[in-house]
Each structure stands twice: as C-alpha cells, then as structure tokens.
Design a protein around this nucleic acid. Structure first.
Length: 247
DNA sequence: AACCTTCGCAACCGCAAGGAT
DNA sequence: CATCCTTGCGGTTGCGAAGGT
C-alpha cells in the first residue's frame, strides 16, 4: 500500500518509500543521529526532501513505534485524551509513547470519530448528541454484542432509575468541570495524569456512563438490552462496570 | 466476475512557532 | 526589529485492500 512514486521539478523523489531507502535513512541516523533534516537527504544519499525523511523516520522507522491494531484500552485512552486535549495529536501521542501522532490521528478520523457519532456522542464536544439524532437511528444499524444477554432494560422504570441516578450526581459534575478547567489551563501532562486518576475512580465512571444515558431517548433505551447499550455507547468499555452496577 | 463503496494508513501540504542572522 | 530558515503540527489526499452488491 502506498502512493505512486513520482519526481517533482527539482528531481526530488516523492511517494512510497522503498526498502533500500529505508535502510539508507536508518543507517545514516544510526551513525550520525537526527540533526539538520534539510541537509540529511544529500548526506545520506537520498533523493528526498528533508521533510519527507523526517516524516518517514518519525512515523515509521523510529525504534519503539508500535504498529497494527489499536487495543480497546488504547482506544479508550485516545477518546479520553481527546476529550481533554482536543485535536492536539502530538500532545495525545506524548501520553501514548509507542504510538505516533499520525497513527492516532488516522485511527481517530477513520474509526473512533465515526464510532462515537454512531453511538450518539458528538466527537468534538464528547457530549451526547441531542435526542433527534438518537431517534432517527434505525435498530438495524445497531451493532450487536455476541455475548449472551444477562438482563435487559426493557421497562421505563429502569430508565427513570438511570435518570434519577444521573440527577443525583449532577452536583458532583459541577465540581469535576471546575477541576478540569483548571487542569486544562495549567500543565497539560500533569493534567492528564490527574485526569487518569480521576477517571479510574468509580464515581467518575458512574458520572460518565449515567451522563450518557441521561441524553438517550427513553423509547430507544427501553428497546435495547444492556448488551446493546454497552456495545452501542461510546462508553462500551464500561461494559463490566454497567453489568456490575445494575446487577 | 465485475463493479462500487468503505476502510486503513502512508505520505503530502500548508501554516505557525521559534531560533538564527 | 525584520527577515529567513528549520522544525513540528494538524488537516487532507491518494491508493491498495477488503467487503458488499
């Protein structure tokens, strides 16, 4: 997979990198280190621009880069960091040392963003999309869990319970928002670490899950099993927690 | 089998920040 | 202070693979 190879007016090669070019770039950097990308191609014997070399090294050749499918934990982290940092891919990548910003950005744009939307979550604000979009979803478009159904939220009573729980913790949300605002405006890394700690706390998980349910239309929710909810929601990774909570 | 659509990902492009002169 | 250059970042594009019709 890759782009067609071509040459620009200055004779600079563009497009897909060959194995030999990779080998030359790695050999040069291993010997001389990374400095002066502008002069590097000529010194390394590559007919590429410095920018292209830099990109190839940082996104593909640099040791320690993890390629391949994202794990559910990594996806959870990306969603979490994105809700905190926005489209600051470099900042997000710093929190996930083995993944490149390009990789994270690609995965977000091609997969996670759509998944959130399908789940009724606005990928920009990370808030539930208002009822209209939830209502227009056809049941056939829902993804179904392959696991066996443990129990279902088939009565409106369950929905009322959820909303009651959500209302009960809304006061805590104000405090959380305030803390988050302070954290974002201060040191980002520290903020993310603190956010990590908070998200791990059960109270915070309760708030996220139930806050999500608050916005889901009652008619829709009453037709969905807990499996479907857990699977369909962007908070699907709270599956275990959901099951435990409502048992 | 052929065609079309969607997905995944590597690479390109333009812009902005920051340092050097 | 102004200009130029380098580096880094985020948005976008191109293209092969996979899946659907």
């Amino acid at each position: 997979m890759g782009r067609t190879t071509w040459f620009d007016v200055d004779g600079i090669k563009r497009g897909e990198w060959t194995v030999e070019e990779d080998r030359m770039l790695v050999a040069y950097i291993n010997k001389y280190g990374v400095r002066d990308w502008g002069a590097l191609p000529k010194r390394a014997g590559l007919h590429r621009c410095g920018k292209s070399c830099r990109l190839r090294w940082l996104n593909y050749l640099k040791p320690g880069i993890k390629k391949g499918k994202f794990t559910p934990q990594e996806e959870e982290d990306i969603i979490k960091f994105h809700s905190l940092l926005g489209n600051r891919w470099a900042a997000i990548a710093k929190q996930m040392p083995n993944r490149t910003d390009n990789d994270i950005k690609n995965h977000w744009n091609s997969c996670l963003k759509k998944r959130l939307r399908r789940s009724g979550i606005d990928p920009i604000t990370h808030e539930p999309i208002k009822a209209t979009s939830s209502l227009t979803r056809s049941p056939s478009t829902r993804r179904h869990s392959s696991s066996t159904t443990s129990f279902s939220l088939s009565s409106t009573g369950s929905v009322r319970l959820l909303n009651k729980l959500a209302a009960g913790i809304s006061s805590r949300k104000l405090g959380l928002d305030r803390i988050k605002t302070v954290m974002i405006s201060s040191e980002p890394r520290q903020a993310v670490e603190e956010e990590n700690m908070m998200i791990r706390s059960k109270n915070n998980e309760e708030e996220k899950v139930i806050g999500c349910f608050m916005e889901i239309d009652e008619n829709l929710i009453s037709t969905m099993s807990i499996d479907e909810l857990a699977c369909d929601s962007s908070y699907y990774y709270y599956d275990d927690w959901l099951r435990g909570y409502f048992q």
